[in-house]
Design a protein around this nucleic acid. Structure first.
Lengths: 340, 340
DNA sequence: CTGCCGCACGAAAACGTTTTCGACAAGATG
DNA sequence: CATCTTGTCGAAAACGTTTTCGTGCGGCAG
């Protein structure tokens, strides 16, 4: 297919071939008003015949619009940033824009460095992907272009943050369990320092209260690991042997809980139902049994962030918090409650 | 810290403050020869006082060097591309370069699109991250700048491919088992269509042969899942009850194998030792017991790819295949063989 | 003193766009 | 016919660099 171009085809070539001036060619390609339909047609044909690709650098130099956004993340190695990135990339691709990715790895120095780097590259806007742990210091005043925060909320309420709706997601899970007749529901989750853990617990409690139920014991806060899930499940069953469902703060914990339940001879979902969180396929789908879980819709979240960024680029920048709803994925770890 | 700059500081400003011409300022900052030490000093001080950041777009427009490389991957969602990306980013950061990331998701159309996009952005070079499945069609002829293939090998032997040394990694694992006195070693791994699976089997067999041993049964090729690990472990133990070690094609399989072994009442590592592959922390470290496994050193692989790309940018481009050695990570799933 | 060489520096061109503004023609209006 | 408007186009400036080439100056040899 494409052959190696020794020197790339420039707007001048297109203009020559179409028999117009460079300025006219530029206007035609950017669909500006002051060009006759016939001329525009000629230019477009010439451009496509030469398979002209505008040099983004020159464009950015003049118009300031590089059609690039910077995506600054803090933990690429984690499993949250990637889906967000993919969703953002999709949404950007539709608009012929691209994404410049940097991973600050939680280091403030590195973060400032990348902000400078991205600004030197004249990105049109920023998307800052945080972790859901807590509010993160606003970087907006360091950045002279529009900024949208994704997944992690900015401290500055004047910024726009697009977040996962942890409370709503937990409600989905809880309603699913309650509607299946589960009555003694325990909660095993990650560190209480994590806002996501607290919000999910809140959502769960709200649904239980509405159903006239209450949580089986206090939420067991621990860490986001399978190991903690295994350990906490023993604690929970010892304290509350009657539990018929466990809502877990993430899928790893859920896998650990399932492990212990099997060790203790409880059948899943017949004796005890389990719901996880995150829909992390490797754990959720490959668990014994496969886990019912809450999908965060992170790709959608990335796309939403991009759309808000576009709006900001067009001049109307919003503020506050947007919650991106999750989605319940039902697998085999839940089912109707046992008859008693 | 940084305040919002209404208009960015340009080389002109630096030159003015240093009392020199723009050209001299440029030369001083780029450490070219024809500038007096005192002058250079003045320019550098002025630049740092104004915290000058050169506009990369203009630089790229002229010199063709944008100090950016394009990284084209096929499966960002998988777990291999990210560490490679991180390693590359590290290596690039040391040289004040940055990376433009695109995920073609295995789609040829999308791939061509991204290649055009990246070329329009004047990247200095490409790193193409494939999967380890098999050779991938060379894209070099579509790309007028240096290209290095990482993780997945190019079909064209004239290209440079930096790959994980699967055979060597398997040797590390096998030598570890053999040196601990294991004599009946089984192998459960992914699809035989995967080159990584075949190479690892080859490495294992080689070590066994050198030790005068042979594999316990044929390698069990299946899929890269925990589920397959659980299933295959039953098959293996039924056919060869005497096995005292299992080398697994990846950590998920190993976790499944561990699961089944526990179900069957075998102690790990006392009765049967297990070695995984990939050192995927979530599975390997959180397994019961934590898995001894082979780390692919993917970050190092990314860095190696970048260094070769630098070499190519400097004019001496290499060809062929570079194998990046792995590293054995010893955890609790292996230990001395049982006395019999 | 003259001529020459090398060093440090600056003027200006170049890069490929976008944008502004002026020119010109054709048609409409008086 | 004169004037104005409208629509289409091109010349030229602008963007912030890098690079090329010319200039002036000091020192040194003849």
């Amino acid at each position: 297919m494409g052959r190696l171009r020794s020197r790339s085809v420039t707007l001048r070539d297109v203009a020559d071939r179409a028999g117009v001036s460079v300025s006219t060619a530029s206007k035609a390609l950017n669909s500006r008003a002051e060009v006759a339909p016939a001329t525009r047609e000629r230019v477009l044909r010439a451009a496509s015949e030469l398979s002209f690709q505008p040099n983004v650098l020159a464009r950015g130099l003049i118009s300031g619009r590089t059609r690039t956004v910077g995506l600054l993340t803090d933990e690429l190695a984690g499993r949250f940033a990637i889906p967000i990135l993919l969703g953002a990339e999709n949404a950007l691709g539709n608009e012929q824009m691209s994404v410049l990715l940097c991973d600050a790895r939680g280091d403030a120095i590195r973060r400032q460095h990348y902000i400078r780097t991205l600004l030197a590259r004249q990105v049109d806007g920023f998307i800052i992907v945080g972790d859901s742990n807590d509010l993160r210091p606003s970087l907006t005043r360091d950045i002279p272009v529009p900024v949208v925060y994704a997944y992690g909320e900015s401290t500055d309420p004047g910024d726009l943050s697009v977040l996962a709706d942890d409370e709503g997601g937990a409600r989905l899970a809880a309603e699913h369990l309650v509607s299946h007749g589960r009555r003694w529901i325990g909660h095993i989750t990650g560190p209480e320092t994590y806002r996501a853990a607290r919000d999910r617990a809140t959502g769960l409690r709200a649904v239980l209260a509405e159903a006239g139920l209450s949580l089986a014991g206090d939420p067991l806060y621990g860490e986001w690991s399978q190991r903690w899930g295994r350990h906490a499940a023993r604690l929970l069953l010892a304290a509350r042997p009657e539990v018929d469902a466990v809502f877990c703060g993430n899928d790893q914990i859920a896998a650990g809980v399932a492990d212990t339940l099997r060790d203790l001879g409880r059948r899943i979902p017949d004796d005890v139902a389990i719901v996880g969180y995150d829909n992390w396929e490797f754990f959720a789908a490959d668990c014994r049994p496969p886990l019912t879980t809450v999908d965060l819709n992170l790709e959608q979240l990335g796309a939403t962030a991009v759309n808000h960024l576009f709006a900001a680029l067009d001049g109307d920048r919003a503020a506050g918090v947007v919650r991106q709803p999750g989605r319940l994925v039902v697998r085999e770890s839940t089912g109707p409650a046992p008859h008693r």
